[in-house]
Design a protein around this nucleic acid. Structure first.
Lengths: 146, 146
DNA sequence: CCCATATAGATGCAACTGCATCTATATGGA
DNA sequence: TCCATATAGATGCAGTTGCATCTATATGGG
C-alpha cells in the first residue's frame, strides 16, 4: 500500500522541493542577469568543461547536467557563437566531437564566480542555520538522485 | 567574510537542489505525460483554485505558484480554452477578474491524482528512508523560502 | 564484405517563456 | 473634478524548450 500512496511528509517534501527550487533558482538567475551575465546553464556547461581537462562529448554534458540532447546541441551552438567553447573532431568516433572551453570561456567563469558565489550565499547559505544544516540538506537531496 | 562566500556545504546543497529538482521534476512530468495528462503547471493552478473556494485572482496565483505574471496570463488562456477554468468579472475591481475551476477542471484533478500520487511516491517517497527524513527535507527546504 | 540496427548529434516546427510594452481601471492629491 | 501615478492583466516579439525526425557514422551478425 505504501508503494502507491505517499505519506503526508513525502507530499510536503515534494511540494517544497518544487517551490524552493523555483524560488532559489529565480533569485540566483536574477542576480546574474542583473550583473549582465548569461544564464546559469552557460556557467554549468563551462564549469563541467573546465573540470574535465581535455574536453567532453556533448553526450557527457547531457548526462551530467540532466539537459535533453537537443537542448545541449543548441546550447553548445550558442556558446560556440559567443566564443566560449570550441569544437574538435573526435579522434576515434567520426560521429562524435569533443567540446573544449576557450580562453574566453575560462574568463567568463572567473568573472561570474564572484557574483554567483554571493548569490548562493545570499539565497541558500544565509537561509540555513549552520553548515551542518546545509550538509544535511545536501545529503537528503542526494538521496533523491538514487 | 561569510556574508559573501558560501561554505562548501552551502555550495553542495545548492548544486544538489538544482540537480535533484530537475531530476525529480523530469521524472514526475514524464509519468504524467506517459499517462496522457497535461503538464504539472495545469494541476498546480487547478489545485489552488479548488482549495480557494470562490476562485482566485490571477495575481494571487502568480504569488502562490511563483510563476511570472505574463505566464499566468497565458496559462489561464490555455486552461480556459481547454475548458478547465472559467473567468468571472471582479465585482469591485473593474481591472480584475476571478478565476474559478470548472467541473471539467475538478474531474481532471481527480483523474490525475492517482498517477501523480504514484509518481511522487516513486520519485520522492521511495528514495527516502523514512517519513522522518521526508519531514526533515521539507523543513530544510522551507527555510530556503525565508 | 554487406546489411540491419544502434548511437551521436542536428534540425524543422510547434509550444512555451522572458521581456518590454500596452490597455484599462483605480487611487490619491491639487 | 482633473490629472498624475499606480496596479491588473494582456500581448507582440524574440529566445528557448520539447518533440519528432533526420543524417552520418559505428557495430555486430550473416
Amino acid at each position: 500500500m505504501s508503494g502507491e500512496t505517499p505519506s503526508k511528509e513525502t507530499v510536503l517534501a515534494w511540494a517544497r522541493l518544487m517551490r524552493a527550487g523555483r524560488h532559489v533558482l529565480g533569485a540566483v538567475e536574477r542576480d546574474l542577469k542583473q550583473a549582465g551575465f548569461p544564464p546559469l546553464a552557460w556557467y554549468d556547461v563551462l564549469l563541467e568543461l573546465r573540470r574535465a581537462k581535455g574536453g567532453l562529448r556533448p553526450g557527457a554534458l547531457e548526462a551530467e547536467l540532466l539537459i535533453a540532447q537537443h537542448n545541449i546541441s543548441r546550447l553548445l551552438m550558442r556558446l560556440e557563437e559567443a566564443g566560449f567553447i570550441e569544437r574538435r573532431r573526435h579522434p576515434e568516433d567520426g560521429r562524435g566531437q569533443i567540446i573544449v572551453i576557450s580562453e574566453a570561456g575560462r574568463a567568463l567563469l572567473k568573472d561570474m564566480w564572484p557574483v554567483y558565489r554571493k548569490a548562493i550565499e545570499a539565497h541558500v547559505g544565509a537561509k540555513l542555520k549552520s553548515g551542518k544544516e546545509a550538509g544535511e540538506l545536501a545529503r537528503l537531496l542526494s538521496a533523491l538522485l538514487e
